[in-house]
C-alpha cells in the first residue's frame, strides 16, 4: 500500500509544504504502514432501480441511485486499517499532539489509498471494472446505512469492522462504500462532483 505524501499534507491543511513538513509526512506514513493491518470484504449484488434485488434492499436517498446509474450489478464493500492504528493514534495523543495529528492524517490517506487498491482488486477478481465509490453519509445516503452494510457483508466477522450506536465505523480508519460494476473508476478525485462546497479539504 503506497501512502501518497501529498494527500497527507492536504489532510493537514499544508498548502505550501517545506522539506520539514514533507519529512514528517514521510515518517508518519512509515509509522502507519507498520501499524496498519489492511483488510477488505465485498459482495456483488444484482441491482435495479435503487434496489439490491438479491436481498430485496432498497437504497435510501436519490443521490446513490443517480450515482449508480444504469448499472445492473453493484459492489458493496468495506475496508479497514485495523484497530492497531486507532490504538497508536490514541497513544501518540498522550505523548505529543503533533505526532498524533501527523499519524492521523497519514492513516486517513492510507485508508483512501487502500480502498482504491481494494476496488481495483475487486475489479480484477470479478473481471469487470468497478466504478467510483459512494459511501454512507455522502449526499442524502444516510449514515444509518453503515449498519446494513456491515450486516450484508458480515463485516464484523470477516474484517473486524464495528459500527457504533451512532454509526461511527470502528476502527476509525475504515471505509464502506457502494460502487457500480461496469463503470470505470475515476483515478483523479474530482471535488466538483461533491455538493459539500464548504469542505476544508476541497481542491479548487
Amino acid at each position: 500500500m503506497q501512502i501518497p505524501e501529498d494527500e497527507i499534507l492536504r489532510y493537514l491543511g499544508v498548502r505550501i509544504p517545506d522539506e520539514n513538513a514533507r519529512r514528517s509526512a514521510r515518517k508518519a506514513a512509515e509509522e502507519v504502514s507498520c501499524a496498519a493491518e489492511p483488510k477488505g470484504v465485498y459482495k456483488k449484488f444484482a441491482y435495479s432501480d435503487g434496489v439490491l434485488t438479491d436481498i430485496d434492499y432498497r437504497l435510501p436517498g436519490k443521490d446513490i441511485v443517480r450515482h449508480l446509474g444504469g448499472a445492473k450489478e453493484v459492489i458493496v464493500m468495506a475496508v479497514t486499517l485495523g484497530l492497531k492504528v486507532d490504538f497508536e493514534t490514541s497513544r501518540l495523543g498522550k505523548i505529543s499532539a503533533g505526532r498524533a495529528v501527523m499519524f492521523d492524517a497519514a492513516a486517513s490517506a492510507a485508508a483512501e489509498a487502500f480502498a482504491d487498491e481494494f476496488t481495483d482488486r475487486i475489479a480484477a477478481e470479478i473481471g469487470s471494472p468497478v466504478g467510483d465509490r459512494f459511501s454512507p453519509g455522502y449526499g442524502d445516503l444516510p449514515i444509518t446505512v453503515q449498519r446494513d452494510v456491515q450486516m450484508m457483508l458480515s463485516a464484523d466477522r470477516k474484517i473486524g469492522l464495528s459500527v457504533d450506536k451512532d454509526y461511527t465505523l470502528i476502527p476509525l480508519k475504515s471505509i464502506t462504500a457502494i460502487a457500480p460494476v461496469g463503470a470505470e473508476r475515476c483515478k483523479k478525485h474530482d471535488c466538483k462532483k461533491c455538493n459539500k462546497t464548504d469542505c476544508a479539504f476541497r481542491k479548487e
Binding site: D156, V163, D164, D166, T168, I170, P171
Partner: peptide
C-alpha cells in the same frame, strides 16, 4: 456479536 465496539476504541 452485536457489531458494536467497546470502549476505549469504540463507545459501547
Amino acid at each position: 456479536p452485536t457489531g458494536l465496539m467497546s470502549e476505549p476504541m469504540g463507545s459501547a
